[in-house]
Amino acid sequence: MAGASLLLAWRELKKWVGRRGVFISSLVTPLLWIALFGKSFNLQALFTPPQGAQLPPGMVEAFRRAIEERIVSLFGTTDYFTFVSTGMLVVFAVFQGMFAGVSVIFDKRLGYLERLMASPVPRSSIYLSKVIATVARVTILDAILLGVALAMGLKISGAGPIDFLVAWVYVVLLAAALAAGYATMSFYAEHQEAVFAASNLINLPLMFSSSALFPVKQMPHWLQVVAKWNPVTHAANLVRHHLIGAPVSDYWLSVAYLATVTAVLLGAGLYLSVRWMENR
């Protein structure tokens, strides 16, 4: 089963890399995001006294320190670029999940899925290959994103190789959860539009109601409640914790929650996808 899953995932990656345009644009898009989104908003500039302002020097310093403290308590860092580029590592997992579904739809429509289903390949491998391919794509994109972010001034404070590895695991968990959801949905969906519509409906709220782009603590109460249940928040918090040392309120609770969401989606997806394939 593992062999067939990996083989089919390899097929997808090969096609992904082979489509130069798609591959390059999926690399450039993230970089534009962090460059524009991350760099266009300079947190500290907001609190720098305007030029020519007549303020006693001691007061400026005290004010700056108070503000910085507040920023750090919200963002875990004083640099918004650092905050958002680590969040973006997680956002990618969300957005790539959709492509697991798109790939199922195309295999269905072009008859490749039928060819697979007429072969002795385990049905579970067909499903898992979509998840594995997505995880691999996210890994590649995130590695590049991280490299560029570091070059552009991402401040990782004392993160060692283990931290990167553990952070990667959390990204993988989130990517797998979303890929599982989208792949399963796509087995049952009749048209690719349904998957695109669903992803429009799901991805943006998932991203904005999480700590990926903005800190949860400054959100209105109701949104904080949503964010607390949003697995993206937990993944983002955990990744930030490892990469930039931002505090997490309850580390193991976050880990357990994220892992549970992934396990449930993967498991339910496996059951439903195989059921779709075998009961037509």
Binding site: R11, K15, L110, G111, Y112, R115, S119, P120
Partner: peptide
Amino acid sequence: VRRLIGVTPQDLTSDDEM
């Protein structure tokens, strides 16, 4: 059964970018 059969579907199923 799947081990015994070969199926050529009506659709063109090959990956044309490979």
